[in-house]
C-alpha cells in the first residue's frame, strides 16, 4: 500500500506500476467465496468442464475487486473510487498470470478526480479493459 497520492502531483499519461498476479485455484475460489458467488463454475472444476472450460475460472466480482485494488494501491488510502467500468474478455484460469497495467487518461479538476484506463492481460489476450474514476486527496 503506497503513500497517499495528491491530485496536484498526478499528470495525464502517468503510468501506474504494473501488477502481475499468479492465478491459482485458491485465488479463484477464495474470490468467489468472498463475493458470496457460489455459481459452481467458479469453485467446482467438474462443473466448469461441463460448461466447456478446462478448469474453474475467476468471477467478475473478483476481477472488479482486483482492478479496484490495483488503482487504490497506487492512489493511496485517502482516495475514493467513484466509477468502475470494464469490458470482459478472455477468462482467468489457474496456471496463468494476469497482469494489470494502467495510466491516467484524464483529470477532472472540479471533482479532483482522475480517470485511470486499465488493461488486464493474461496468456489468451485481454482479460478485461476498462477504466476507474477515483477522487484523489487534495492539497500538495
Amino acid at each position: 500500500m503506497g503513500e497517499t497520492r495528491r491530485f496536484a502531483e498526478v499528470g495525464v499519461g502517468d503510468a501506474l506500476p504494473a501488477l502481475p498476479i499468479e492465478l491459482t485455484t485458491s485465488l479463484i475460489v477464495a474470490g468467489a467465496v468472498a463475493s458470496q458467488d457460489y455459481t459452481p463454475v467458479h469453485h467446482d472444476k467438474k462443473a466448469a468442464q461441463a460448461a466447456g472450460m478446462q478448469d474453474v475460472f475467476m468471477n467478475i466480482l473478483t476481477t472488479n475487486g482486483l482492478v479496484s485494488r490495483f488503482v487504490t494501491d497506487w492512489a493511496g488510502p485517502d482516495a475514493r473510487v467513484t466509477h468502475l467500468s470494464v469490458k470482459l474478455g478472455t477468462p482467468n484460469l489457474p496456471g496463468d498470470t494476469m497482469t494489470l497495467t494502467g495510466s491516467v487518461r484524464e483529470k477532472d479538476d472540479a471533482a479532483e478526480a482522475v480517470v485511470v484506463d486499465v488493461t488486464v492481460k493474461n496468456a489468451w489476450g485481454n482479460h478485461v479493459t476498462g477504466s476507474v474514476k477515483v477522487i484523489l486527496a487534495a492539497g500538495d
Partner: peptide, 10 residues
Amino acid sequence: EVPAEASGDS
C-alpha cells in the same frame, strides 16, 4: 452454450 463470464471477444 458458453458459460457467463467465460469469454468475450475471442
